[in-house]
Structures are given as structure tokens and as C-alpha cells.
């Protein structure tokens, strides 16, 4: 079983300043990061998110609908919402299946312990989603991480986060069916996810 390699953030010859999650929100409040900025805080660095193409957007919308049909009100589903993982990291994954909470996480953003399944849809961002985000989701203890690789027409299923990596990585193709770790009775055709 392949253990995915860890690719470090591009090393600048000099060390970049690392912002905290609090700094990140503060920069939003005071307008340093304008409301229209599409940015994530990754390892303390403010990173521009890739522009969302129609294929990516449609795939997320269709996943959202399919997961709601299958899971109903047993969970909360957050689309491109924040996830607080570490002091220096505040990503916005494409899809988060979260433990149901009555306040819909109004009072605090979800953390890794709330995540039942995290999905990133990758059209052009596969190396980033797999090599940069993957080890970090594993380190945070996200129990299951899927990458819908639209370009490669496959679904990468990551499980068993241990020692900063997912120990169990399955690559599923269009003919396969994916099961949710936390809801093993639910199966989704990979072809439905890839569209």
C-alpha cells in the first residue's frame, strides 16, 4: 500500500512570517483581507485558493445533493466552510460531513474531531490536495479523506491517519463503489461522484 509522500510547502530561502488563525480572522475584520479574497491559511501562510471552474463547482454541488439524499439529517454538511485544525491552519475543504449539531456550528467552527468525512474535489490541484493537505489532515486526525480527482477520473480514499500520514489509501475508478467509513451501510457509485 502506497504511503503518500509528504511534500513540504515551498521553502523560501528566508522564513515566511506565520500568521495564527486569530490573526487570519483579524485581517478579515479590519479589511486587510477583503471580503472577496478567496484565501486559506495553510501552515500560517495566506494562500490564494484556485479559481473554481465549472466542472469543480458542479461536482461539489452534485456531491452535496447526493450526500444529503443518503445521509439526511443524521449529519451536518458544510460546503467550502472553515475547519479549524491547528493554530496556524484554517482550510476550507470542498465538502465536510460533520457530526450533527443543533447549533449548526454557529458558536464554534468545526474541528477535526467533528469530521466524519472530508472531501476535496481536485481538477488542477491534485498534488496540493494529496501531498500538502493530505499529511496535514492526517496529522489533525481527520478519519476519512476523499479526493475526487476529476482529471484522473478516480477517487482517492484515505483512511487510518497515523504518524502524520494516511496508512490506508485506496484508489477507486468509475466502476467502483465507495463506502463511508462512518456509515458503512451507505455506498456511492464513484461514477456519480466524478460526474
Amino acid at each position: 500500500m502506497a504511503v503518500e509522500s509528504t511534500q513540504q510547502l515551498e521553502q523560501a530561502p528566508a522564513e515566511r512570517w506565520r500568521f495564527t488563525v486569530d490573526d487570519f480572522y483579524r485581517m478579515g475584520e479590519v479589511g486587510i483581507l477583503p471580503p472577496e479574497a478567496r484565501v486559506e491559511l495553510i501552515d500560517g501562510e495566506v494562500i490564494k485558493m484556485a479559481p473554481i471552474g465549472s466542472h469543480h463547482n458542479g461536482s461539489v454541488a452534485s456531491l452535496d445533493e447526493r450526500l444529503r439524499e443518503l445521509l439526511g439529517r443524521r449529519v451536518s454538511i458544510s460546503i467550502q466552510g472553515p475547519l479549524e485544525l491547528e493554530r496556524h491552519w484554517n482550510p476550507q475543504p470542498d465538502v465536510l460531513i460533520l457530526k450533527r449539531r443543533d447549533d449548526y456550528y454557529r458558536n464554534a467552527n468545526p474541528t477535526a474531531a467533528d469530521v466524519l468525512l472530508l472531501i476535496e474535489v481536485a481538477d488542477t490541484t491534485l498534488p496540493y490536495d494529496r501531498d500538502t493537505k493530505g499529511p496535514r489532515y492526517a496529522r489533525a486526525g481527520v478519519v476519512e479523506y476523499w479526493i475526487a480527482d476529476l482529471t484522473g477520473a478516480r477517487l482517492l480514499v484515505h483512511r487510518d491517519p497515523r504518524d502524520g500520514a494516511y496508512q490506508d489509501v485506496q484508489i477507486l475508478t468509475r466502476e467502483d463503489t465507495a463506502q463511508l467509513l462512518m456509515f458503512p451501510e451507505i455506498a456511492i457509485a464513484v461514477a456519480d461522484i466524478l460526474g
Binding site: I32, E45, T132
Partner: peptide, 24 residues
């Protein structure tokens, strides 16, 4: 396995201005 997509620059950093620095 399908070919890897052409990699984009992995991380494009947000660019701050001198005024942003003062505001920070």
C-alpha cells in the same frame, strides 16, 4: 493509472501591500 494533471504552481501566496503591513 491515469496521467497526473499538469501541476499548477502549488501555492500562490496572497500578496500584501505596505499599507496592509501598517494595518497589521
Amino acid at each position: 493509472m491515469a496521467a497526473e494533471p499538469k501541476p499548477r504552481p502549488l501555492l500562490e501566496h496572497w500578496k500584501f501591500t505596505v499599507d496592509d503591513l501598517l494595518r497589521m
